[in-house]
């Protein structure tokens, strides 16, 4: 136990400012709590097993009362990246950007350039969905794909408060049962379901999500 405290103490110095909120919630000063702060990323097989689903969540820890006031930023592009040949460079992207109450989607498409800077691939398949309100979800389909953008319950769950206490040296372990710090909070979600045939077909792909701000 003494050793553990010492190790945890070292951990605090090594990782000061550690794990403010987990998954990727509020992960870095430049994006913390802002409109480009990606809180979470999911990728999984759809209800139709010929499809996969990508989820990007933004602006976490929204109380129900402040959810209606949270909006997607028209200067922030959300880009799902798909590497189909295992070199960790994106071969395909799905881009999402809001304009005037709609979320527009482009792709999946090979990007004109890879890396830190993007332009919107307006020549790719274009889709859009009305951005949902808290009480009225809107779903859209186009070209075999499904689209949603708007507030949802934050799907992330963790006893983050107790973890913080452990790291701070105020507790030596988790409680049982734990307490979900994210209970009763919302996020802004972008959900896209696409046929597997559009993102590599078979095998394993590497995926990640990026937020990019207009320069």
């Amino acid at each position: 136990m003494k050793n553990m405290k010492i190790y945890l103490g070292i951990g605090i110095f090594a990782i000061a400012g550690f794990l403010l909120v987990a998954a990727d919630h509020i992960d870095a000063p430049a994006v913390s709590g802002g409109t480009s702060d990606v809180t979470d990323f999911y990728a999984f097989q759809g209800e139709d097993t010929d499809n996969v689903v990508f989820v990007a969540n933004l602006q976490g820890l929204l109380a129900p009362g402040s959810t209606d006031a949270a909006t997607f930023d028209e200067n922030v592009l959300i880009e799902f990246n798909i590497d189909t040949d295992q070199d960790n460079v994106e071969d395909l992207v799905i881009q999402a950007i809001p304009r005037d109450g709609k979320m527009y989607f482009f792709g999946p498409v090979a990007p004109s350039i890879t890396g830190l800077n993007s332009s919107i691939m307006t020549s790719a398949t274009q889709s859009s969905v009305d951005i949902s309100t808290r009480m009225t979800p809107v779903l859209e389909q186009n070209a075999g794909m499904k689209f949603f953008a708007g507030p949802r319950d934050d799907p992330f769950f963790m006893d983050f408060a107790q973890y913080s206490d452990i790291i701070a040296g105020n507790a030596t372990g988790f409680d049982n049962p734990g307490s979900d710090t994210f209970q009763g909070t919302n996020v802004l979600s972008i959900v896209v379901e696409v046929p597997k045939s559009m993102v590599g077909g078979s095998g394993t792909v590497n995926t990640w999500v990026e937020s990019k701000r207009k320069q």
Partner: peptide, 16 residues
């Protein structure tokens, strides 16, 4: 326009 990267995420909790 050009959009420049601000945040990215693959696996959960790695950056944090």
């Amino acid at each position: 326009g050009v959009y420049a990267q601000q945040d990215q995420m693959g696996r959960p909790a790695v950056n944090t």
